[in-house]
Design a binder for these strands. Structure first.
Lengths: 340, 340
DNA sequence: CTGAAAGCGCTAACAC
DNA sequence: GTGTTAGCGCTTTCAG
């Protein structure tokens, strides 16, 4: 069923049908109703492809997700989706499924440069109004991404000359340090991600700044690198707690590792939070169900998605010369592994 | 940059350019190279919209997700995505975000019937080749979905007259019952979802069938209904374990509830799995990190997504008169809360 | 092997 | 108010 056929049946021109369908032009109420009638009868649905081709406006937002099963992705996409719904955009999505391909070897993304380029080509060919790149891990993607002029925004990672929206690691880590100090601690432990990791550095710097401001230090022995997994942190916690002057407060840089610390503490018969305070990061599901529930950091994933989508359209309005970086604040969720 | 402009610059006709771009027709190698050269120079990218309009083949798969943040969605979508990648399809996705709107009041989907209809209209208008409906909970969606003739497949739920792919609740529950019996148990407990729940019924029937086959019964007192959440199951577990002849094996119908049982058991100083065996369902992240890790059921989400996408295209080939139901098998993951 | 031209379904001047 | 018509960018007969 096409507009032409509707026109024929209604005994009017295609223009008239188009007018009533889009509410443009002026059509007598009588004709309008008649056309609408036929449209309903025939169950006509306009071919959006044709319409888009003609008007040269796709209303499509392209989204490339590094891996949709990674815990950050879904909520971020929901933010993008809400923006889309509110602005009548559609989402053309493609999932690289990188997690199942390279796991935590984040640097191996290099091997997928061609794939990414191809996906971008397809999206651009589909006339998307911009592309959102939802990463699975905060890292520097310069030299991976092709340079091109269409609106493109990175979500949750960084690259030179690219616009991006991420969250504020440094300040929330600062808050955690400050919180520990307020709770009266003087010896602190940190279990970070792999030492090269971008977010580990940021979090470490914020945390140590808080300590330094109050005259505390964080000796190397009090900093362990985990691999973001439970087991590594459990091991690290045993080391930390075996120190001559063991820390009384540990910042584990994700919830899984915090759970590892919790497990070690239980085994050592430490009371949580009385003998040891623990703060995690991410607010993943397990943090609510650990015993006691983990004090942790909530990452503004939804807002990041929404903001990034919005950015696509400010980029379309006016192309800023410099790259913009939106860094959204996190929130510390006080639960059972800290006293206050 | 259009095909026309390329043709002009290359000094050939648009037809020729189209031929080389699509590998159709026959073009002399010389001309071919020349055109390719110009294409590369100008960074030309074909307008897929126009191409699709002309050929009347969109290669787009429409996906409606009830809520992308629900734990089943991401992996299911990844299955769909893999099918799409392998068959050169693109995914036009829309997230209803129902979980944030109606939570676990699954029946309230009625209020969103219009929304769903609208989304379907948009997808169909976008010339998708079929629509996948990824549900967040297995339930009967008859009377919610509009009837129409385009390929449409439900994933993870059911509706009269609709094609669907789900997973096999009954048989895996049967396996669980059988496993308990093999491990020597004679008194069994079940913590189900809300009593009206479709999956609860299926799982209960499979489980009791296994018991019945070996001459065991499941008295009403040994069946509690939870609300899929931790707290409810913890409470239920206390009741179950306070029975005069308490069960020595409990089947909790999701991991969160199994974790609740675990917590109750710990508090009662029961050794797991020696004094009590527990089986959960879902294989969610927390099931790996509970102490001990939960024996649970892995749901074939990825396969469901992939199969459903494939179904769309068999429906396009030949429209079967009857609705088809694909019921994929689950897998029991033996971990720490059962002995063998 | 190459090109002219029709037309996919729709929109939007422009004319009446 | 309504109709005619020229395309949007592409594919694909059909002629040569």
């Amino acid at each position: 069923m096409t507009i032409k056929e509707i026109a024929r049946r209604a005994g009017v021109s295609v223009a008239t049908v188009s007018y009533v369908l889009n509410g443009t032009g002026s059509v007598s109420e009588e004709v309008r109703q008649h056309v609408l009638q036929i449209v309903k009868e025939t169950n006509y649905r306009k071919n959006i492809l044709a319409s888009k081709l003609r008007t040269n406006s796709s209303n499509i937002l392209g989204v490339i997700v590094e891996d949709i099963t990674v815990w950050t992705s879904a909520r971020t996409i929901q933010g993008i989706g809400d923006f889309a719904e509110q602005h009548n955009k559609n989402i053309l999505m493609t999932d690289l499924a990188l997690n199942s391909k390279i796991g935590k070897n984040f640097h191996r993304i290099r091997e997928y440069r061609d794939t990414i380029n191809k996906e971008i080509d397809i999206l651009l060919g589909s006339q998307v109004e911009g592309i959102l790149y939802v990463s699975m891990h905060d890292r520097d993607l310069s030299h991976i991404l092709p340079s091109f002029s269409h609106p493109f925004v990175l979500v949750g990672c960084y690259a030179e000359d690219f616009h991006c929206v991420t969250y504020d690691n440094t300040n929330i880590a600062y808050s955690i340090g400050k919180h520990f100090i307020e709770n009266g601690h003087t010896r602190f432990g940190v279990i970070s991600g792999p030492s090269g990791s971008r977010i580990s550095c940021k979090r470490l710097s914020g945390f140590t700044r808080a300590l330094a401001e109050q005259g505390f230090s964080l000796p190397p022995a009090y900093i362990c690198s985990g691999d973001w997994e439970y087991v590594s942190a459990r091991q690290a916690a045993f080391e930390l707690l075996a120190l001559p002057d063991p820390p009384t407060a540990i910042f584990a840089m994700n919830d899984l590792m915090a759970a590892g610390v919790l497990s070690a503490a239980h085994q050592l018969n430490l009371k949580i939070p009385e003998n040891l305070e623990i703060v995690g990061f991410d607010d993943q599901q397990l943090s609510q169900y650990s015993v006691p529930p983990l004090t942790t950091v909530q990452v503004p994933l939804y807002d990041m998605g929404k903001e990034a989508a919005a950015q696509i359209y400010v980029l379309r309005e006016s192309k800023p010369q410099r790259q913009s970086q939106f860094i959204l604040p996190c929130r510390l969720l006080h639960r059972g592994t800290t006293r206050f």
